[in-house]
Amino acid sequence: MLVPAAIAFVLLVGPLVALLVRAPWARLGALLGGDTVLPALGLSLGTAAASTGCCVVLGVPLAVVLSGSDGWPAPVRRVARALVTTPLVLPPVVGGVALLLLLGRVGLLGGPVFRATGFQLPYTTASVVVAQTFVSLPFLVLGVEGALRGVDRRFAIAATTLGAGPWTRFVRVTLPLAAPGVAAGAVLSFARAIGEFGATVTFAGSLPKVTQTLPIAAYLALNTDPDAAIAIAVVLMVVALVVLVSLRDRWLQGIGR
């Protein structure tokens, strides 16, 4: 029992230790300020923030609809939930290909738009945001739906009998009570978005300063400038740690309980 457990632990922690040991700490500032990393860092933070915003704006209403789906026929409900969850289990590259087939220059929707206006979404910064939103939306929707379902029904009843219609009830009672769940979902979405690689590189490519986010820059730099790749990895690890710490109370204690 102890040996496989120890191997598992080393497998989980070892790579991170290696990363920290090999990181070019002395040159870290210079590397991060360099021509490759700084634009990628700005692009990653910007697109991840934008896609997190999209996730909240689109995902909260979807979560509301799903949390009220108990009256739907069971098969419809199951299919709806499965479809929403799909991007979680889909290989990101497949997601990228699928996005191209829908929104690309010859895609189902993208084709007509391109013929009519000459505009094509892929290989633009906006396409990075779309790819990130696609992969991270389920985190937000499932988290918020759980939070909405967790709000005690008697608060909604109290609001109703105090004269609140459905909208007031949602805005002033249910949503505020589910706010920690929305925040946790947003943080998870951000984490997923900033680490996004497969769907982004497939759908948006890797144009420096336009679609080349940190993970893509790290992958490309590994061949040409390994130290830069390591520096990016350190940055992404710090982001992951910040996410972990910010979710500590909700997740780790929740698991412990």
Binding site: D152, F155, I157, A158, T161, G163, G165, V173, P176, A179
Partner: peptide, 20 residues
């Protein structure tokens, strides 16, 4: 008449004060 428009107040078993 929907409950929110009835001139009827309810005090629930556990006070159900809004915690936020």
């Amino acid at each position: 008449v929907p409950p929110e428009h009835r001139p009827v107040g309810v005090v629930q078993q556990q006070a159900a004060l809004f915690p936020h």
